[in-house]
Amino acid sequence: MSANTEPALKLDNVSTHYGPILVLRNMNIEIFPGEIVCLLGGNASGKTTTLRTIVGMVAPTEGKITLDGVEIAGLDTTEIVGMGISMVPENRRLFSRMTVRENLEMGAYLRKKGNSHQEDLDRIFELFPRVKERLNQRAGTLSGGEQQMVAMGRALMARPKVLLMDEPSMGLAPVLVQSTFEIIKEINRQGTTIFLVEQNANMALLIADHGYVLQTGRIVLADTAENLLNNKMMREAYLGEM
């Protein structure tokens, strides 16, 4: 978390268009190794597009994206994922007809079959004991909370340097949101850098180190999580205090 090391992931003046429409405008985000950084914002503010831009599903029209100092903007998703970025998509989106085990194995798709799979699986079972019980069940039959666990496990199977998470709290019961965030904190403690996109600003800022606030495609606030929690504008706009 020291500011003098190189950022793990850096967005430098990134803009993204969908056709002629500007969706992200001159974004600057820095995520340092070992940090949890969150990107907050309401509906349609460009949160998901930011993630899609980072993994190369949309190409930025301007700016640079670097992973450990290496430029990744403009590369194929396959290459970017191979370089160490993986994503837990919004709404979890498991391969619902495959078993839990097959879902997890898909996460390690780019790492050729080796002896290391079992190691990763064991680590995931440790984080999510429930996943082990459900291993041969079809993913579509799991409850929402269990699906979230499998989705996180699937992303971790790729052994990412940076884990992107798109609204992990969406559609989960409050008690599950709580435990999900605890698990995110634990994953981070074990050494994975996390970039978290959330509407639930309160929860996200409690576990994050830094936060960025996105409004209609533009970063309007960037600060430490603590400062953001105390920021007056933040409190009024996102933290539900009038």
Binding site: T78, V81, M87
Partner: peptide, 11 residues
């Protein structure tokens, strides 16, 4: 099953 997610898995 899901083309987008498959792509995000690096396929």
């Amino acid at each position: 099953e899901d083309e987008d997610v498959a792509e995000a898995m690096g396929i």
